[in-house]
């Protein structure tokens, strides 16, 4: 076991850094191929496989950066973030972090945003399935329960606050069109999944604030209080209910949670 572990350490060490060549002396050479050449096959295959996964998951990022810069990004990423998951599906999940930290990418802030868009679509694609709440359930709520109502959301629901027109760039690239020039555009985008298909839309600031509160388990009353910044006292409850109905219609909400204390009191009254 000790000898096998040492061999595996040397082998993996070579894959992660091909200047670490302790493994080569453990490999048989043949007249046709030296041990170095045989190990080089594994070294090349390791990088190729990881690059193939990144190229598949970040197709638009690749299109935006071009072959050379994307190749540089992949090399840096493979070196900095070895895979710690049994599935390649999760290998590229830190790429936006690397882009924000390392030159020359940190000079291009829209690049991290594009990476986050592609990651968010990947996460939405295979997020856990769940039963969705219905408008009927909403209609049946006790009027007194509304103030403390909180929502539980489908795992595919994600908010992406953007500083640039990265979504427009992403959309053009995914349609195989020339992307627009980068411009500042502070918008929050919503990604969710409806009938197994990922969807996206830009949010008005008021809805973005409401959804941010709802996603952090804030209550309907909390949402209404925040919306007073945008609407009159008369308009606010109607606006908040309108958001709620749309989220439910779009299959974003998995559960309507009434206040626990209230529920317990209700049960006790029987």
């Amino acid at each position: 076991m000790h000898a096998l572990r040492k061999l595996q350490q040397d082998f993996l060490g070579y894959l992660l850094d091909d200047t670490v060549v302790g493994i080569v002396e453990r490999i048989e050479s043949t007249p046709r191929r030296s041990a170095e050449q045989r190990m080089a096959f594994y070294g090349n295959a390791y990088k190729l496989r990881l690059k193939e996964a990144l190229t598949t998951d970040y197709e638009c990022l690749h299109g935006y950066l071009g072959d050379d810069l994307f190749e540089t990004l992949m090399e840096k990423y493979i070196e900095s973030y070895p895979s710690h998951h049994p599935s390649l599906r999760y290998f590229g999940q830190h790429i936006a972090k690397l882009v924000e930290q390392q030159e020359p990418f940190r000079q291009l802030p829209e690049v991290a945003e594009i990476a986050r868009i592609e990651l968010a679509f990947g996460n939405s694609f295979d997020a856990a399935d769940c039963q969705c709440a219905s408008l009927e359930q909403l209609a049946q709520l006790d009027p007194e329960a509304w103030a403390t109502l909180t929502l539980r959301f489908h795992g595919a629901v994600q908010l992406l606050p953007q500083q640039y027109n990265s979504f427009q760039i992403w959309r053009a690239l995914s349609n195989e069109e020339a992307p627009p020039q980068k411009t500042e555009d502070e918008t929050t985008w919503l990604i969710w999944r409806q009938d197994l298909v990922s969807q996206y839309r830009a949010l008005e600031q008021a809805e973005s604030v409401a959804l941010t509160i709802a996603l952090s388990a804030g209550s309907f009353a909390d949402i209404c209080t925040a919306l007073l910044e945008y609407f009159s006292e008369q308009e606010t409850p109607q606006q908040a209910v309108g958001y709620l109905q749309r989220w439910i219609n779009d299959q974003m909400v998995s559960e309507l949670n009434q206040d626990q204390e209230k529920k317990a009191a209700d049960c006790g009254s029987f």
Partner: peptide, 24 residues
């Protein structure tokens, strides 16, 4: 084997064919 120290190579790597490996 495919990895070590919680690092996955995502490749199917060969083992040495000996008694120690068989036992393991």
């Amino acid at each position: 084997w495919t990895g070590l120290n919680n690092t996955n190579s995502h490749d199917l790597l060969p083992l040495p064919y000996n008694e120690d490996t068989i036992t393991h």
